[in-house]
Design a protein around this nucleic acid. Structure first.
Lengths: 329, 329
DNA sequence: CTGAAAGCGCTTACAG
DNA sequence: CTGAAAGCGCTTACAG
């Protein structure tokens, strides 16, 4: 039961009457090393007895890479959706012996010092990576997987297709007969990356479906301001609005109530994210689900295979993004 | 511009024409080492030139502790509030050169292998720590700070006073004249820890204020089920309910709408957390704010001081928990 | 003020 | 099948 200040493999070796190498072999189940069952037993017993835990630092130094996966995120605020993604990722990765360290960086900044310092087994990034960094990480044997917002075909890249999201919002609205569509953008400039793409999807879909271009208005996190936006849309003949995300949709709905209007009759509203609270909006919120659990699972599988040097798993079917119809649109 | 596969301090030393020790001294600004300005310049130039980044593993091995702080969490689901806490913590700690690694463990499990493996500079835990672990971490020079749910007086412990939260909910309701109070508990058993304490606070306050004991009913994340609970409360003469948290409050409010009732006239509702969406509930949700940003800031300060061996900062005023009055109660 | 050298705790060829 | 030894890249007494 762990007494010595610091129990090392050497201590275990001595206690078990074997060499340090043997301790390492049994602990790591090193292949092509035939350890006799009794030896293995004795080592394991000594390990348990002394409460030995291998030093991550020593192992990392020796092997040249640590058991962490570096998660690189942009500086935008972490909504419930991304928070869930991170949580699932941590959970899944922990299951295969990996720790995740999250780091925020400004888009376009070099990330070299980050990974050189940690020598992670893999890096998962949601920010675009400089080609030089990509190359150097490759040389250093670090598996890189990117979760990008735009679609892209590359085994090690997973896309969170924001454009598709915008498109889906419009298609759903158009199907219900809406011709003049509004777009509620959040006030936060940090979210620019997501916003630009979602809006692009909305615009493209409007054009393709022969609708007017969307009437884009900011909807800050404030009921009064949301109410003003709602009135403006009504005057402009807008009958349905795509909200940037569910939180914006909630603000919008609150603004409508203040303005004495209700969804979907006065103005239909569709969000993005399908947050846990969406069913409890008034009226229950129609929204787009990104199926973040599928994304997280795939990311974990990608990392696992990438580190093991196995062939990468195929990207899950891209219909991962679906509309969840409730009552607001 | 970083070319060699691996740039070490030795490379920098060679390039700068100094010894490896000197490189270490200038990089770490080691005190009591007088390095001539020119030498320092040359070293820094070589560092920049070669793109040198010290190896975290080597440093950790040598120094006996790494630059990570281990965040130990129970297995409960991470709501928006805790997610925000973690995010702030990561942000604040990153600012002082520390990475956080989050790990979930079952309450009561030993965490020795965890910290022995990483040798973190500090551990922040939201699960109760075994005294043996506490002692051993102390011996190992690891600073431990606990964010506990119950109040406790200990410099290195920060309390998230759940009992106080329940009490505050009831006091607010009683002040508005309510005598028969309901309690909406979530369906998820994982949340037991928080629940028990919040409910204890509610019960105590009811007794102290001479009210009946609370009528506790489960409110699952389902509008129909919530509606049933609401009807039952009404029949029992309950006029106000404390929700376990804001999410439960949202479900409750949705159930009320389904039952044709509205808050606060038919049933007053008060939540906990003050999530960003609370103002957009219908009606806007009255709730308890735990001021998680204050908590996070204090935790960071605690860790910083603890690692530096400086006197610990005083606990912020305990009125950190406040009621935010909106319209639902 | 600067350098040579030991040693942190592992893993892994390499001998035997 | 098992062990002795080198070496991963640092930091830090210790000499000079």
């Amino acid at each position: 039961m762990a007494k010595a200040l610091k129990v090392t493999a050497k201590d275990v070796a001595r206690a078990a009457g074997v060499s340090q190498a043997t301790v390492s072999y049994v602990i790591n189940d090193t292949p092509h090393q035939r350890i006799s069952p009794e030896t293995r037993e004795r080592v394991l017993a000594a390990v348990a007895d002394l409460g030995y835990t291998p030093s991550a630092a020593a192992r990392a130094l020796r092997k040249g890479s640590s058991d962490v996966v570096l998660l690189v995120m942009p500086h935008y605020p972490i909504g419930p959706n991304i928070a869930a993604l991170i949580e699932r990722l941590e959970e899944g990765l922990e299951g295969i012996g990996l720790s995740v360290v999250t780091r925020r960086i400004r888009e376009g900044r070099p990330m070299a010092s980050l990974w050189r310092e940690m020598m992670p087994a893999a890096v998962v990034t949601m920010v675009t990576v400089d080609p030089v960094d990509v190359a150097e990480m490759g040389q250093a044997g670090i598996f890189l997987t990117q979760a990008l917002l735009a679609p892209r075909s590359d085994e090690a890249t997973l896309s969170l297709p924001q454009i598709l999201i915008g498109r889906l919002q419009v298609e759903h609205l158009a199907q219900a007969g809406h011709r003049r569509i509004g777009y509620a953008e959040p006030a936060n400039p940090l979210v620019e990356n997501f916003l630009r793409l979602r809006l692009e999807g909305v615009r493209t879909a409007c054009v393709e479906l022969g609708l007017d271009l969307p009437d884009v208005r900011p909807v800050p996190f404030d009921t009064d301001a949301a109410a003003s936006a709602v009135r403006a849309w009504r005057e402009a003949g807008v009958t349905a609005v795509c909200a940037y995300n569910d939180e914006t949709a909630f603000a919008l709905l609150a603004g409508m109530r203040l303005a004495g209007l209700s969804a979907p009759s006065d103005l239909a509203v569709i969000g993005v994210d399908n947050i846990p609270l969406a069913p409890f909006a008034f009226p229950p919120l129609t929204t787009i689900d990104q199926h973040i659990d599928v994304v997280a699972k795939h990311l974990v599988a990608l990392v696992r295979a990438g580190i093991a040097g196995e062939p990468l798993p195929a990207t899950p079917r891209s219909e991962a993004v679906t509309v969840v119809v409730r009552q607001s649109a």
